[in-house]
């Protein structure tokens, strides 16, 4: 299902109403802290890595978003967000989400750092 205008806002609004946004910001903060600690990078490095994302990565993210209409519509619904909110109150779930996010971040950082190393090595 293609993306309708306003759907991204609707998801955020629903997440905010149910407290998911606040919980997710805390989890994101913890995951970032953990990834920064593990890789020895700084937040500025992560912003620069984002800046250097390849066109392929950007278009893949765009493709995912443009076909996520149904999923986002579901996420914007109050019952789903209410369940998500209650789930994030469970420590095990919070830790799992945080761990998953942190691992993805570390993987992305290391992949980009590795890519840079290979490029330098080839010069």
């Amino acid at each position: 299902m293609p993306l309708e205008e306003g759907l991204v806002f609707d998801v955020m609004a629903s997440a905010y109403r149910h407290g998911v946004l606040d919980k997710f910001m805390s989890i994101t903060g913890d995951a970032l802290d953990s990834a920064i600690l593990e890789t020895g990078r700084r937040m500025g490095d992560l912003v620069n890595m984002l800046d250097e994302a390849t066109e392929r990565t950007v278009m893949r993210a765009n493709g995912l978003l443009s076909h996520a209409g149904l999923l986002l519509k579901l996420a914007a619904s109050d019952p789903v967000m209410s369940v998500a909110s209650r789930s994030l109150e469970v420590n095990a779930v919070r830790n799992a989400v945080k761990g998953l996010l942190a691992r993805r971040l570390v993987k992305a950082i290391e992949a980009q750092a590795g890519g840079g190393g290979r490029a330098c090595g080839g010069v």
Partner: peptide, 14 residues
Amino acid sequence: VVVNLTRARPIISM
């Protein structure tokens, strides 16, 4: 929608 970035320490710190 209020996104309280203070909760995401590394972001607000930057």
